Simulated scan of single mutants.
Amino acid sequence: MCKIDYHDVKTPETCPGEDLTLVKKPLDISSGKEYEKCRYAFFPDRQLCADEPEIVVKAYDSILFQYQDTGFFMQDITSDEIPAQWEALGKPQIVVTSLRYADILKKDFPQIPVISIYELLQQLQISGGCNSTDYALFYPETENESDNAKAAVRGLAESMGAKLHDTAEKKLPYITCCMDCRDSLKNNGRDAVHILELIYGMGASNTHMIHEHDHEHDHSETCEHGESSAECGECSDIPECSGVCSDCSADCDNVLNASGPAAAEPPAPLPTKDEQLANLRELKEVMLQLFWS
């Protein structure tokens, strides 16, 4: 597994006096009132909220479906208000999307129990073979090595059908549990996806994501017997293409770079700082409308 500290992305700064915090207990559907205390509180990292707010909504909804007493915790990780807000929610276990957030909480507020969303989702036995892509695993170095969380990321990816590699081969896309890392990799011209995008669907920045296997190419060749090597009885033991271009001899670069109707669209750009800030504002409004109105 690739271990690189890859944080060169900064989350957008809010305007002075603007409060994008949202810390709330869930509503009890039967009574219409808030739960007295929460079992869990979902704490998505700011970069995920700014980049892919739809995933935040879907992730919270999926946890809330299983555990109706799950609160929501959208807050700056550096805020001194976190302990008091945690106590107001009934001292729940905090569910983080960022291993860096887990590090900070464990270091600064050791009284707060923390679990990654990846461990929680694995406990819920999330599965489904909907992605057969080859990926290289990528995660940042953390002060407190979270082996359970990293093992959960691997397990979730494999349960979704992904084929994982510990080293980055040529053109092999990365899969990560760090939104900062995903953005940094994409900014540096690498193909990368967040594990939550596989689970909840690709966000806007990956709508037209291109992987080396996302095209069809003809690997059939005419053998010395004058037939297709795939059909010739004497040559039929030639292995079929696995879909990973680095494993075969096809001229896949020409296919990827081809022009015309069959050519794939380039990936959409990452959101600008202004767009990220707009996403944060809209996310707070949407969460209130969906879950507290």
Rank of each mutant, 00 (worst) to 15 (best):
S31T: 15
K107D: 15
S62C: 10
E275F: 01
S127N: 13
E145D: 14
H217K: 07
S62H: 10
E231G: 00
G233A: 13
L164W: 03
D237E: 13
S159T: 14
C241M: 05
C38K: 03
E13H: 06
G32R: 05
P269L: 11
I94Q: 00
P110G: 09
C177H: 12
C241L: 02
R281Q: 12
I4Q: 10
D5P: 03
R281E: 08
L89T: 04
D134Y: 12
D253F: 04
L99G: 03
H213V: 00
T78V: 04
A268Y: 02
R39E: 12
E227F: 00
N188Q: 11
D251L: 01
H165I: 01
D76S: 15
L99I: 06
D180K: 11
L137R: 04
E36I: 08
W292N: 11
E240G: 11
K24V: 10
F65Q: 13
D147I: 12
G189M: 04
N254F: 05
A157E: 01
L99R: 11
L48W: 00
C15W: 12
S259W: 05
N257G: 08
M74R: 08
G155Q: 11
L105S: 03
D8A: 10
E212D: 14
L124G: 02
P110V: 06
P266F: 05
G226D: 02
Y40M: 04
Y200Q: 05
M74V: 13
G32L: 09
T167F: 12
C245A: 14
K33H: 09
K24N: 06
D5V: 08
A41M: 05
E231L: 13
I126N: 01
A59H: 03
Y139S: 12
M202F: 14
I126F: 15
Y6H: 09
A192F: 04
E54D: 15
G189E: 05
D51G: 00
Q68M: 09
E13K: 14
C49V: 04
M160Y: 14
D166E: 15
Y101C: 12
S98P: 03
T133A: 13
E197V: 02
A102G: 15
E34Y: 08
N254A: 12
Y139H: 15
K106C: 09
Q68Y: 07
P110Y: 07
V114C: 10
H208D: 14
Y200T: 03
Q111V: 06
I195R: 01
A263H: 07
M202S: 05
L156G: 07
L280H: 02
V255M: 02
K186Y: 04
L120G: 00
G17K: 06
E34F: 06
L27W: 03
R281K: 07
Y6C: 08
V9Y: 09
S205A: 13
E143A: 09
F138N: 05
H208Q: 10
Q123T: 12
M209L: 11
Y139I: 05
L124C: 08
H217R: 15
L196R: 00
D214S: 15
K170Q: 11
L22S: 02
T222Q: 08
I104T: 14
D45Q: 07
Q111T: 10
E265S: 12
V153S: 04
E81A: 13
P269Q: 11
Y174M: 10
Q276K: 15
F73R: 02
E285I: 10
P44M: 10
N187R: 13
T142R: 10
C49T: 04
D5L: 10
S246G: 07
T167N: 10
S159E: 05
S205Q: 06
Q75M: 14
Q289W: 02
D51Q: 09
D214C: 04
